[in-house]
Amino acid sequence: MPQITVDYSDVAAPAFDRAGFAHALHTAVVEIAAAKPEACKTQFRPSALTAFGYEDPEDRHHAIVHVTIGLLAGRSEETRARLAEAVLELLREHVGNGGFVLHASAEVRDLEASYRKFER
C-alpha cells in the first residue's frame, strides 16, 4: 500500500516524465496520506489507442492520463481529495506540451477489506 496505477495514452509518452512524476507522487502520498516511502509502488500502463468523442482515434489529437491510488481504509474524504488535487497538479508539471489535448484525472479510493499482498 499504496497501490498506484497510471493509465496513459501512448501518444503522451514522449511528453510524460514518468520517473519524475513517480518520485514526486510518492513524496506527495507520504506527505498527504502518511504512507511509508518504501510502500509506494507505481505501475505505468500505456494504451495504444485512445478514442475521444467522434474523432478518428488515428488522428491522435487527444491523450488521457488517469491515476488511481488505492489506500488502506482510514483516510478522510478531505485527505483523499487533497491527494487527488495534488496528483492533477503533478500531472500539469510532468506532462509537457506534446501537440495533443491532455485529459487528466485522478481517483483516490480505499482498498477493499480483502486486499492482501506478499513480497519475496
Rank of each mutant, 00 (worst) to 15 (best):
E119S: 14
V67I: 10
T50E: 07
A113D: 15
L102M: 10
L91C: 10
G20F: 02
H61A: 14
L88D: 09
Y8Q: 04
R45F: 10
A28Y: 11
L83D: 06
M1T: 14
A24G: 08
V108Y: 12
G99Y: 02
H94T: 04
H103Q: 12
E78G: 14
L91E: 00
D17A: 00
E31I: 06
A12R: 03
L111G: 00
T50S: 12
G74C: 07
A34W: 05
A34V: 12
E31H: 09
A28R: 08
A86L: 03
F52W: 08
A48L: 08
R92E: 14
H66V: 14
I69R: 07
G20E: 03
V101K: 13
A51D: 01
A73F: 06
I4Y: 00
T68H: 13
K117N: 11
R80H: 01
V65Y: 08
P46Q: 05
P57M: 04
S9D: 13
E119T: 15
D17T: 03
Y115T: 07
H61C: 13
C40F: 00
E107G: 06
L71D: 00
K41W: 09
A104I: 02
P14D: 09
E119N: 14
F52Y: 02
I69M: 07
K117I: 05
L90K: 02
A35M: 08
A48Q: 08
R109W: 09
G20P: 06
G96F: 02
R80N: 11
E107Y: 01
S114T: 15
R45S: 09
G96R: 02
G20D: 08
F100D: 00
V67R: 04
R80L: 01
D7C: 01
T79N: 02
L49Q: 09
A39P: 03
S114A: 14
P46F: 03
V101G: 07
H23T: 14
